[in-house]
């Protein structure tokens, strides 16, 4: 009986463990291998060394994708965190109707990025969206056509993504705020600290782990961003909003340059790992301390 109890958890976990081992890690290795081969339309196994990587970084298109990712990532993570924290602090003021307001902020997260992208494509379209609405209301000098402008189109992706995710970040922060020990806050209040000061000096520093979690969730969403871009701009105007994920798909599956596509996938994986591994490391370390 005792031995069964010992083995049961492992037995139950084994199938999913093997499935993940094969379908995630084995395919990561396979993609890694393909990135060193001359694969074009179908996988082929002629070894070419780092040629695909040199090709990749010589491509203008890839550089556009990286620059877009940088702009998108920084703004998306930054605005979501600030806005999420701000909303959480407002909701934390023990206001009436919190239970009603909270889901309103949270609902966008329930939509898929495809829906968000399509809806915002219509809102932002100068012909039928916000611009047109204001024109019909009589404000004819109103001008908002970022989605059609190759210099600004990437910012429209930021707008839609922030709309989608900031409620979720708010929920994370709210949970963090509620988790702060009331005794400490009361002590600070007795010492005469103003609410602003309490937030700045006590609560926010205590929420460091929440910030970290929010950062990790948002960062990997940013790197994986694909569906939102496809639905919102289709990578356009021209190729102005191409991001690494759309680049990877098009090179692997529509441009018959699977080798280059695989190498871009590996670069994306390295980016994700460089965020996740320090996080896991710090998590595991604090786990040991406990």
């Amino acid at each position: 009986m005792n031995r069964l109890q010992q083995w049961l958890p492992r037995l139950v976990l084994a199938p999913s463990f093997f499935v993940i081992l094969v379908f995630v890690y084995a395919f990561i290795l396979y993609t890694g291998y393909l990135s060193f081969t001359d694969s074009r339309m179908l996988p082929s196994y002629g070894w070419v060394g780092f040629e695909n990587y040199t090709k990749l970084f010589a491509l203008r298109h890839w550089n556009t994708a990286l620059v877009n990712l940088a702009i998108f990532g920084v703004l998306y993570i930054g605005i979501c965190s600030v806005l999420g924290l701000f909303l959480a602090i407002l909701l934390d003021q023990k206001i009436r109707g919190e239970g009603f307001i909270r889901p309103i902020y949270l609902y966008p997260m329930a939509l898929s990025f495809i829906v968000t992208g399509t809806a915002w494509k219509w809102f932002l379209d100068p012909g039928i969206g916000i611009e047109n609405t204001f024109h019909n209301l009589g404000w004819t000098s109103f001008h908002f056509d970022w989605i059609k402008d190759r210099n600004y189109a990437i910012y429209t992706v930021v707008i839609a993504a922030v709309w989608q995710s900031s409620g979720f970040v708010m929920a994370m922060f709210l949970a963090g705020l509620r988790g702060v020990d009331n005794e400490i806050i009361k002590a600070a209040q007795i010492d005469g600290a103003s609410p602003a000061r309490i937030y700045r000096k006590i609560i926010i520093p205590m929420m460091r782990p929440v910030f970290l979690s929010a950062f990790v969730v948002l960062a990997h969403l940013a790197i994986k961003a694909y569906d939102l871009v496809i639905a919102l701009t289709g990578g356009g105007p021209g190729r102005a909003t191409e991001v690494p994920a759309t680049f990877m798909y098009s090179y692997t599956f529509t441009r018959n340059q699977m080798g280059v596509g695989a190498s871009s996938a590996i670069i994306m994986m390295i980016m994700v790992f460089s965020i996740i591994i320090p996080y896991l490391y710090s998590e595991l370390k604090s786990g040991d301390n406990r």
């Binding site: 059609k148 289709g234 356009g236």
Partner: peptide, 8 residues
């Protein structure tokens, strides 16, 4: 000769 709203 195209309109402003042509992209996409």
């Amino acid at each position: 000769y195209v309109d402003d709203n042509f992209s996409g």
